[in-house]
Design a protein around this nucleic acid. Sequence first.
DNA 1: CCAGATTAGGCTCCGCCCCA
DNA 2: TGGGGCGGAGCCTAATCTGG
Length: 543
Amino acid sequence: MEGETVSTFEDGRYTDAMRECILQLVTNGNVSLKKIPIVINAAKSLTRKLPERIPSIGLISSRIMLEARLIACKQDFDPSSNKGATLHQDATTKFHQQFEGIQDLRKELFPAFVSDFDALPTSEKDQLFSMGMFACRTHLVINMDPAAAKGPAAFEEAVCSSGANPHSYQDNQAGTVRLARTAASAFTMRGSQTAGTPLSGTRFSGARARRITSSRFMDTGQISPSITAQQQWTKDGTLPLPLDSPLFPEGQSIMTSELGMSLLRTQSPDLELMTKIALKLITLELLVLVERQASSQLPEGKYWNPSKELIESTKNVPKTNVMGERDMTVLDNLLRCKPGISAHNLETTLMWWQNKPASYLEDLTKPQREKLHMEARKKIPQMKCALSQHRKVLKEKVEQKLKDKHEKKEKQKARHINMRLKASLEVFSYEILARNDGASEVPAPTLVYKEPEDINQATVEKKMELKWKLEKTRKSRQAAKAKERLPALVSDPSSLVGQRFLHQCNEPGEPAQWYPATVRGIHNYLICIPKIKSTHHYHIPHF
DNA sequence: CCAGATTAGGCTCCGCCCCA
DNA sequence: TGGGGCGGAGCCTAATCTGG
């Protein structure tokens, strides 16, 4: 009887509508493949209709899901689509290793799906592959953690006579950081060593310094002063962080909390001195970091003044890694629902869940939609081939990793046995075993500070090291910039006028030295520098 | 004949539960 | 705490069916 069943199977295959329905159930509805018939039958009470046929599990997992992936990638590729069309990634890691698989797969998929991919100009190919590779804005904040951990490590090295805090573990982590982490996991609900609250109110100088820098940077970041306040500040030349900074509106000043103020209260001369040393080292580490970031974001940097094309081609790139992090939760939940799901189907489900290719399909015209389904079906053999290749590579990688891990473990075990053997031999040599009575406990390690002048010297050395590092990165940035600008300067020397540069010259018999100078004018391609009397060595200007 | 679909069987992985 | 059994979910492959 007409109206009892819905046609789902035509011309020897399932209709596109049926395919989309199944995909929505699997990806957004979280329905397991086996339970799809149950869900569809349950809907009968509302629709009073049943589909004439429902695809088998095998068909869904081996074909329809692959088609779904191609459709999702097509959406990702389609510049006219504005429906969250990008692959997500965790952009807080510098080299995006977490989702390396997806990036690799992307490279395999574009050639498989984009018609005449090989014919595309190289620049366009590169653009396709490089999209979404931008650094997350939170990089700076995230990277402050390791930088702020390096500071205390250098500090402890500088002040402890043993060269390390004897209360820390035998790893490279500073005792201060270890303490803060342990406290964070102890004092918070479901405490996490990395995400817990920062340690507060401690009398330890390293931790105090860490907390002070944390207040200054993190609290400042949270207040976000108004544009007018920022503009005013750039003109009046005051320091950015004093308590009464014009940057922050009344009542929003940083460091006014009880905790913040207590950190600045003078306690003991020793603690003051130690805190200052630690603060200097930490802030130097942070300066290295901030300069690195600023070099790409300020004028002359590659992200300053991006071209129109770049803005256009990247408008769908996520501005934060929130999506990527949320994907982790989704992945976690999905794995509980579908423990056996394959990595590629997991990724497909994720893309359908987050990018909503279903609504992308709905916005297409009927012929476009049919064409897309047909193209996806046509590409299945190629897809299967690419996926099995990818799977093979991944499997090899995993096996190699396991092998390495096993070898490392074996090595550790051997070392451990050796150490114990050595220790027991020593024990025998001292005949301690014979003396069992009244044996005193091993004394706890004590923290012995270096002599004041040694601390001073060690601190100066550490600071010099960091300053040298800063100088080195500055120099290499300058060199890179100079190299980059050289061709333009050679072709148009007059553009040099007004530029400052370093000039190396020497009096006869004296060692050469660098002097800053400014280009006043260009005559016959000869760079003229006023006020130079001795032999000249001309060098590529540094900017 | 062929593409698409189905089926069966073997296999893996995971969480839960029980028990020693 | 760790091992074993069980069930749920899915993957993969080969053999087979089916309709144009």
